[in-house]
Simulated assay, not measured.
Amino acid sequence: MTRTSTLRDPRVERALSRMFAQAEHDDVAAAAVVADRPTGYAPTTARERADDAAAIYMPISAEGGRLLYNLVRAARPTTVVEFGTSFGISTLHLAAAVRDNGRGHVITTELSRAKTAASRRTFAETGLDDLVTVLEGDALDTLATIEGAVDLVLLDGWKDLCLPVLHLLEPRLSPGTLVVADDTSFPSMAPYLAYVRDPANGYHSVDFPVEDGMEISCRI
């Protein structure tokens, strides 16, 4: 029997094609947001940052999305947690893999009300909304409400918050849980990388050279 990835579903292909095209158009605007706050946006609150970038796509790369899909297919997680929905490009890859596994659910969190609404529309249009729960609000608040084990984590929100979010989720990470962080070449990711690369903190970590860098860490 021939099987086709949900990423090949015409609804998903159309959504990803549209969003990647918009993201490419937004590259200059996204770079300007970063340039205004070269140290990881520290001078502003998470809410102010979300408002600044409410209309800007700052997505995972296409190659990074395919990597996420493969990781979820291989790990077969029951609960996937994503920090930083944005418009939902990475979430679609996660949800497509969950669909093809025949098990699991994606919990994702986004501070921007506009992006939350847009991503929910996209998940409904692609037929993946039954596999995704979008939590609107500050991730340090919304993710604190999660119950049970977390089996795979994607950290792709504001870079200075990746380590605090990881600390928040750590009590729910079992041995073997994968934690993936995007944009690791950003200077503001240095504290996060130092933490997961220190064996004393309980991870086996490897740098994966995709676009702006990804770190794949296994909880040991």
Rank of each mutant, 00 (worst) to 15 (best):
V72W: 10
A118V: 02
V179P: 04
D26G: 04
L131R: 12
D52Y: 09
E24Q: 12
Y57N: 09
S86D: 13
G148D: 06
L193E: 10
L94K: 02
A144D: 14
G127D: 09
S17W: 03
A114H: 05
G88V: 00
P191M: 08
A144L: 06
T133I: 04
V210F: 10
G137W: 04
A42W: 04
D27M: 10
E48K: 04
I146Q: 04
D100Y: 06
A23C: 05
V132K: 02
R8Q: 14
L169W: 11
T78I: 12
V196W: 11
R76I: 07
M189T: 10
V196F: 07
V134R: 10
G84T: 02
E13R: 13
G102Y: 12
A144G: 11
V180M: 14
V150Y: 04
S205A: 15
T4P: 00
A194S: 13
S119L: 01
E24D: 15
D9R: 00
V210T: 11
D100R: 02
Y41F: 15
D198K: 02
P171D: 13
I220P: 00
L169G: 08
L178W: 12
R11T: 02
Y57I: 06
G102C: 09
R49Y: 14
G88Y: 00
T2E: 14
V180G: 11
H93K: 03
T142I: 06
A29W: 02
V206N: 06
S119H: 00
C218H: 09
Y57R: 08
F186T: 04
Y41V: 05
V34H: 04
A200K: 09
L168S: 08
L163G: 01
E215F: 00
L140T: 07
T142P: 05
P10L: 11
R47F: 12
L166P: 05
R219S: 01
V179L: 09
P209N: 14
F87Q: 06
S217Q: 07
V81I: 05
D160P: 00
D9A: 07
R219P: 03
P191Q: 05
K115Y: 03
